[in-house]
């Protein structure tokens, strides 16, 4: 029971991180019907920017944790958002209206480019970070097994819940959110009603990237290391999460992220760690067989 509880805590923490990345996939897919394969790299860049910022703040002597966290989060979100915006401008917008294959290839190219870019600038070795949020407490102790809850885990889950709630309200209530949903449902019609469609699409990339940046900061704080290759794996997991939850659905991305995190952690804990990724994909395949639109996906709107 204690062991189970521990895995639950770890799984929710990991799931929060996947969920934040998955939102970027689902928003971009919802609006332009395309998987942004460079999104995992965007998250990786967010993680690198965080490490660099934390190190720089340490050198500047800013060590009060809440302030340092806030500064790093803001800087990572802003810079990563600029990356997200640029990727759309360079790799996708010029190809809009062409075949479906062209932007796909362009996306993969962009992803490789960003990976190599970071590898060249930052080196191929693993980059470590001094722990920033240390400690935690023992939740309970059962059968000689202590259930540990780290402050970092509380921080990750709390921040994720707050961001997701704010973001959901933003999409549901504001003009920008409404324009996002209108473009999702019928881009041409949104344009005919005066919505600046290109800008709305850019904003989807920007918002997705900013949330991925937060995930990047969290992962750096959680694991204390970053590597130019992390974007690929996390990207695929988060993409799987988005599809599992129902691609295009915001609550679906959050739920999918949580499930993928839990599956991965529980599988490693109770079966073998080697097959944890296979487990996640098997669940995905099963869900798609019985619910092709994913858990919370809406059936495709019939376009007139």
């Amino acid at each position: 029971m204690a062991y189970f509880l521990q895995q639950l805590i770890n799984g929710i923490t990991l799931g929060a991180i996947y969920g934040l990345i998955a939102i970027g996939y689902t928003m971009v897919y919802g609006i332009i019907g395309m998987i942004n394969f460079a999104h995992g790299e965007i998250y990786m860049i967010g993680a690198f920017i965080s490490v660099i910022c934390f190190t720089a703040l340490g050198l500047l002597g800013i060590t009060w944790v809440p302030l340092a966290l806030l500064i790093v989060l803001v800087i990572a979100m802003v810079f990563t958002a600029v990356y997200g915006w640029t990727v759309e401008r360079i790799a996708y917008r010029p190809l809009r209206g062409s075949s479906r294959l062209a932007p796909l290839i362009s996306a993969i190219g962009m992803s490789i480019f960003l990976q190599n870019d970071v590898q060249l600038l930052q080196g191929a070795r693993i980059k470590p970070l001094q722990p920033v949020i240390e400690g935690g407490f023992i939740l309970t102790e059962m059968d000689g097994f202590a259930v540990h809850l780290g402050y970092i885990q509380i921080f990750i889950v709390f921040l994720t819940v707050v961001l997701m709630a704010l973001f959901s309200v933003f999409i549901a209530r504001t003009d920008i959110g409404r324009a996002q949903r209108a473009c999702e449902q019928d881009r041409t019609m949104a344009g005919l009603l005066g919505v600046n469609v290109d800008r709305t699409i850019s904003l989807a990339f920007v918002m997705g990237a900013a949330l991925a940046a937060v995930a990047g900061t969290m992962v750096v704080l959680y694991y204390g290391v970053v590597h130019f290759y992390i974007g690929f794996l996390a990207g695929i997991k988060a993409f799987t999460a988005a599809v599992l939850g129902g691609i295009g659905s915001l609550p679906g991305a959050m739920l999918g992220g949580l499930l993928i995190g839990l599956i991965e952690v529980f599988w490693s804990a109770y079966f073998t760690i080697e097959y944890k990724d296979v487990a996640a994909y098997s669940i995905l395949v099963l869900v798609l067989i019985f619910r092709p639109t994913g858990l919370l996906g809406k059936p495709e709107v019939e376009k007139v």
Partner: peptide, 18 residues
């Protein structure tokens, strides 16, 4: 081409964009 997953009010709000 009414937005199917938006309320009547939201459809009108989008219409008021310009």
């Amino acid at each position: 081409r009414v937005f199917p997953h938006m309320t009547v009010l939201e459809n009108l709000q989008i219409g008021a964009t310009p």
